[in-house]
């Protein structure tokens, strides 16, 4: 991989140790346990604010810990509410929009977090989401990423609210659905799966976010 024009991240970004194992486990069960997932996985939730962007970013971070053994890319394709750059302390621009709008070079927009993890931020641009989704460069862009990286994690807007995920699902295939415990209704995730499958995607699994344990620990072990 060519040297990037962007400076390598000066900050040290890590996962909170109390949940790091959860994301490492998720990474392993996604890519290393014989599941038919492929190189690229799309991460989305059914409704807004359920934590899909955070989960996607944390998942990419966990995958990028493997000290250079695997090359991991995180693509912030959340056209409605981009936030990966905030979570990682990176810049919004340049990013995906630059590639799709101006056919910018991949190397010119990539931001490196560490030796294994490269991040594509949302990028600047005023293009309407519908135009971006129709863009012919999406296919070649992801094909190129597949060549360059071992694993690609893509964050996208909520599937029940915007058509983005449905449109991308056909291109990318595997989808990881995020649901927030005690908030996302059962009906909503069923609806989300129907939409994703209608778009040609395949639901490979779900992640329960913000899980609480209402039963006190001392009781939980007794009953």
């Amino acid at each position: 991989m060519a040297e990037t024009s962007q400076a390598t991240a000066v900050r040290n970004t890590t996962l909170n140790p109390s949940v790091a194992d959860v994301f490492r486990g998720l990474w392993v069960s996604l890519f290393y346990s014989g599941r038919d997932v492929g190189k690229t996985v799309l991460v989305c939730s059914s409704g807004a604010g359920e934590g899909a962007s955070t989960i996607a970013t944390a998942l990419a971070l966990a995958g990028g810990e493997s000290s250079g053994l695997a090359k991991v890319a995180l693509v912030d394709f959340n056209l409605r509410d981009p936030s990966a750059h905030n979570l990682l302390g990176l810049k919004l621009s340049p990013g995906v929009r630059d590639i799709l709008a101006r056919d910018a070079d991949i190397d010119s927009v990539v931001q490196r977090v560490n030796g294994s993890l490269d991040v594509f931020s949302q990028g600047n641009g005023t293009g309407k989401p519908i135009d971006i989704l129709r863009n012919d460069r999406i296919g070649p862009f992801f094909a190129r990423l597949n060549e360059l990286y071992d694993h690609v994690v893509v964050d996208v807007a909520p599937v029940n609210e915007y058509p983005d995920a449905q449109a991308l699902a056909g291109t990318l295939g595997s989808v990881l659905l995020v649901a927030q415990t005690d908030r996302t209704p059962r009906e909503a995730i069923v609806q989300a799966r129907k939409r994703l499958e209608a778009g040609g995607g395949k639901l490979v699994g779900t992640v329960l976010n913000m899980r609480t344990y209402p039963i006190p620990r001392f009781l939980y072990h007794r009953v």
Binding site: T13, T14, L15, N16, S18, V19, V22, F23, G25, L26, S29, L30, G51, T54, I55, T57, A58, L61, L87, L88, L176, L177, A179, Q180, T181, D182, R183, T184, P185, R186, I189, V190, R193, L203, V204, G205, T206, V207, L208, N209, M210, R211, T212, Y213
Partner: peptide
């Protein structure tokens, strides 16, 4: 709303691959 792993797996035929606890702090530092 979904309350447990069982709930989610009953609703979808897909497995729950991870369950992230509520931390009250940032997941990414």
């Amino acid at each position: 709303s979904i309350k447990s792993i069982d709930d989610a797996e009953d609703a979808l035929d897909a497995p729950v691959l991870a369950s992230v606890p509520r931390l009250g702090r940032r997941i990414i530092r």
